[in-house]
Amino acid sequence: MARATGLADRALDLVMALVEAPINAIERLIGRGRMPYVFLAPNLVLFGIFTFLPIAIAVGYAFTGGTELLISDRPFVGLDNFRKLLTCESYLVPGSCEESLFWTAIWNTLWFVGFNVAGTLLVALVTALILNRAIAARGFFRAMFLYPVLLSPVVIGLIWKWFLDRNGLLNVFLQMLGVPPEIFLLDVGWSRFFVVVVSVWFHMGFYTLILLAGLQAIPKDLYEAAAIDAATPSRTLFRITLPLLAPNLLVVLILLMIKSVQIFDEAWVLTNGGGPGTANTFLVQYIYQMAFAGDLRLFGLASAASVLMGLVLLVLTLVQLRLGKKVES
């Protein structure tokens, strides 16, 4: 055993000696003071190529048309893509829009964001408040709620698809209660409902954990003081717990919105690509379909839609940062 680890150590030392030699040569060449730039280089190169360059390209592509890939082959169309996306007789009626699928996706996304944010926040808050009590097996429950957070969206989509199947367990329960079976995912209303349910199920553990961390940061002596002041439980909740949790609630709220706007993976798998019809087609799916899934690869339109979504997310993020700072001070 000792010999084996010794050997592994020596092998690693040998590899590192090979790696070290050129880096040390650079150090001798440019001096110690400039080494941080060398250490940052791989990171910055990757960020540059795969994050900053794409941002620049996205904006460029949004102003070009056609289906060619290379920007040099693409005709400049000015604001045409944006005009196409934003031309509507009534924004409330997607059918009246030139690009009706875009507006269907927007409205689907808005409804989803509303229900998902409300549902997740409520469930996570209640769970966090309960877990913050001195309750037995707290670690176990916390872990239980965290488990789905770590699963793959595809897996979650499939597990729930099976659960909601015509022959799935939910229909078994309903049958026990004498309710006729239902094919939930082929019904517009039910499918939308379950997309939200699955999303809450998937992510609530994450937000519970953040809120719980916030709750545990509230000094215990405040509760003792409140008890001495004969505060009722409801006054304690509304006057002490929730106000002191406000920063965390705000962060969670905005984070939830940012994540909800980007709903795609689990909904896509669960609803067989946004079905029934376009009842569960969301914004990211629209972009994906325009750019990658259709017969025509409408990179310009997809980029224009990305830019619009990016602006919304940017505003949300800036609001989050501003709120975060205000609450801190």
């Binding site: 960020f47 190529i49 795969f50 994050t51 900053f52 360059l53 794409p54 941002i55 620049a56 390209i57 996205a58 592509y61 890939l69 920007i71 940012i258 980007q262 795609f264 990211v284 972009i287 994906y288 750019a291 990658f292 990179f299 997809a302 980029s303 990305s306 979504m309 990016g310 997310l313 940017l314 993020t317």
Partner: peptide, 16 residues
């Protein structure tokens, strides 16, 4: 760059 999720840059990132 935390502010720029992949969903926003997926088209140009693909082009890269």
């Amino acid at each position: 760059t935390l502010m720029i999720p992949l969903t926003v840059v997926m088209v140009p990132a693909y082009l890269v």
